[in-house]
Design a binder for these strands. Structure first.
Lengths: 209, 209
DNA sequence: TGTACATCAGTGAACGCGCGTTCACTGATGTAC
DNA sequence: TGTACATCAGTGAACGCGCGTTCACTGATGTAC
């Protein structure tokens, strides 16, 4: 095979993206601290300083990885939303869609703890700020809550408060499942998730009255 | 003054504790990663290797710092409990005491983000495992829930589920307040805390029926 | 169509840094007789 | 009460490591004429 090895061209062609991908891989395994510039370069097969053509700083690479992590989190939420089948009852559907966003959030956290940590480690300011053009996790949650409003299940001026409570609950559950309450079985985990989503629901119903 | 400076004795006398305290201080400022053996030794005024008389490892120092962090968290919860004044109504009091534990938890997280991070970074297994002889955060929460049971407000076999939901909610709120939703005013923060505690209450009331 | 040359994207070697940890040591302490 | 000596708790110097970053450089690319 050695004769047919295509020699790597001098110019990589897409080094910036390749480095970010390597960074994502590192983050998946070891969280934010594992994003190491030299190691990313090593994996891409490039000298460490080549990275400086594309990032002024290590922190810029980390930011780029965090952005991808956020996008993947949003994707997990929309994936779960896509599984929702209309029931014919608009109110039931609205609740289901809210649950789906939460479920997607927690599933991502459990499946990708490293990326999850990166997303919330390097968040400067709040996630409401855009990760445009695709709506980020916050936007997706707000959309789901607007769905409740449209179905007459939530007062329009309760959306912000509802969002922050729902987010914090789901975020907390995620960290609990990753850390102090690592569950042995996936089934037990799903039970905890659904129980927590129940609680969010009853909380929101209550605050409506 | 220089003549009256008492020369530091060759033997420190309490180096282990001094190093842990230095580690706590480092953790307060920079979280788990800031616990650096050489720096701790530097602050105590001792050579780096002296630490190895008291810890086999850096990780052993980190563990000791985490233990202190856990104790301080528990303290914050009991402090808040101590503020509860009996109202004459056992049911109201039981709710108030549960709220107090949650409030103490979140207050600690907001006041000491670095220590809070250490506590949950290095948690091996779950926090239910003892930090004896004083009851840890988990024990304090369980106690408060047993209070609800005693007041006839919670089914005895719901305690575990209630504990994990309550914990995850309060934990999530803490992280949210530290990160994505850093609040400008203390008042706004307290409002969010109380709103979340409300939600935990309605959630538990619901699951009782 | 060809050639000069600016620009871009890499290389290789080296830097200084702070870290955890180990080595051989020395000063202080406490116990046995 | 004094002295020998084991033990304990420190010191000072050094190690190897991997890191982020900088330097002067070279190979490839694209544009002007």
């Amino acid at each position: 095979v050695s004769t047919t090895v295509r020699p790597r061209p001098y110019h990589h062609g897409d080094l910036r993206n390749a480095l970010i991908s390597a960074g994502v891989e590192l983050a998946r395994q070891g969280g934010p601290a594992a994003i190491v510039l030299r190691e990313a370069a090593r994996r891409v097969g490039v000298s460490p300083n080549a990275a400086y053509r594309h990032f002024t700083d290590l922190s810029e690479l980390v930011d780029a990885v965090a952005e991808r992590a956020f996008a993947t989190l949003a994707e997990s939420m929309t994936d779960e939303l896509a599984k929702c089948r209309p029931s014919g009852d608009a109110q039931i559907d609205a609740w289901q869609r809210l649950r789906a966003t939460g479920r997607g959030y927690v599933h991502f956290a459990v499946a990708e703890p490293g990326l999850f940590a990166v997303a919330f480690d390097s968040t400067e300011g709040d996630p409401r700020a855009g990760h445009e053009p695709v709506p980020g996790p916050w936007g997706i949650l707000i959309d789901a809550l607007q769905g409740l409003v449209a179905a007459g299940l939530l007062a329009p001026d309760s959306v912000d408060a509802a969002a922050s409570t729902a987010w914090s609950t789901v975020h907390g559950l995620s960290l609990l499942l990753l850390g102090p309450m690592r569950q042995p079985s996936a089934a037990a985990r799903e039970r905890m998730i659904e129980a927590t989503l129940d609680m969010i629901g009853t909380g929101l119903r209550q605050s409506r009255g």
